[in-house]
Amino acid sequence: MRFRTRDITRVESTWKQFVPSAVLHDVDPTSFLFDWHSADLGGVSMVRYDLAAEVRSTAEPQEQLLVCRVDGPEARVYSDRGDLDARSPWISEGQRVHAHWEGGARVTALVFERKALERQARRISGDDSLSVRVRDLSPRSAHAAAAWDRMFAYIEQSALTLADNSSDELLRAELARHSAATTLAAFAVADRLERHRPAQAAPAPATVRRALQYIAENAHSPITVDDVATAVHISTRGLQYAFRRALDVTPAESLRQARLDGAHRDLRSGTPVTVSAVARRWGFSHPSRFAAAYRESFGVLPSVTAAKHRR
């Protein structure tokens, strides 16, 4: 969704679609201009807007995690506990955060559904006992903050090319995973829960074979390692352990290879299609990274495969 407006009522009503608790106070109508861009990635929404006005705002997300940065020469950001660094992103899972700026500011934000981010945290770590809890509103370090900013710029640029239909469903899911992984690395948000059941026993090799079959049959869809584990009736952590023990690879590596294999088949088919289109179809949004991964797997660049089999 993209639009520009001078209608003040659209600001709060639009923002409330993403953070229902958000409230704007004292918006100056004399210098008002609202430029909005957002994208739904599934479990997380990307939001970027420029708001030219004197603004006081408050956010208190519920059942969500809001990661936000307010960038403006006069911007001030603070929680009920004290000031936050307006030059860095911050995170909240319910703590009230206030912002004030004069003249104008750019706001960049990712709004995660709590359960979706928790699933991503467990999938990435392989630990089914992880729970998302914000321990510090500020990022772990200046380096972590810079990494989050770079990730957001990449997500927004990639989101501009997403189609409204389901043709980019896999790419949309990969962008959601990337945003979750970087956010989890940038902020102290993961705690271990006490286990309420014993660790799962080692599965038989048949479980791994069934998982590989499920991956092969569904790699074209936006499945996750959690989906694979559910399909073969095992915990995500148990699946991680089973793959390591039987194949010395992770389920995520197997899924990535299955998608590379799918791209390889498409390029060998001779069907007139660009390398970038094949990459997007299989969830690779960055052409150079796709080319590097493809070459590592098949020994040649994808363009070479496409040219060799072009009809």
Rank of each mutant, 00 (worst) to 15 (best):
R4Q: 13
R6P: 01
D7I: 09
D7Y: 09
T9E: 15
T9I: 07
S13G: 02
T14E: 13
V19R: 01
V23W: 01
H25I: 10
T30Q: 13
T30M: 07
D35F: 01
L41I: 08
R48P: 07
V55C: 15
R56T: 15
A59Y: 03
A59G: 10
A59N: 04
E60L: 09
Q64M: 07
C68S: 13
E74W: 06
A75P: 06
S79H: 08
S79I: 07
R81E: 13
R81H: 15
D83K: 15
P89S: 03
I91Q: 00
Q95F: 03
Q95R: 08
Q95K: 05
W101E: 11
V107E: 14
V111W: 05
F112G: 09
E113G: 14
R114E: 14
A116I: 06
R122A: 04
G126L: 13
R133M: 14
H143I: 11
H143Q: 12
A145W: 03
D149T: 09
L162N: 04
A176K: 04
R177F: 03
H178Q: 08
S179K: 01
L184A: 07
R192L: 09
R195Y: 02
H196C: 02
H196P: 00
P205H: 06
R209Y: 09
L212P: 00
Q213W: 01
A216N: 04
H220T: 10
H220I: 07
I223P: 02
D227W: 03
D227E: 04
T230F: 01
A231F: 05
Q240H: 11
Y241T: 13
L247M: 11
L247A: 10
D248V: 14
V249F: 02
Q257P: 05
R259P: 07
L260W: 03
D261L: 10
G262M: 09
D266I: 02
L267E: 04
T271E: 15
V273H: 07
T274M: 06
F284S: 01
S285M: 04
F290L: 07
F290H: 00
A293P: 01
A293S: 15
F298N: 10
T305I: 12
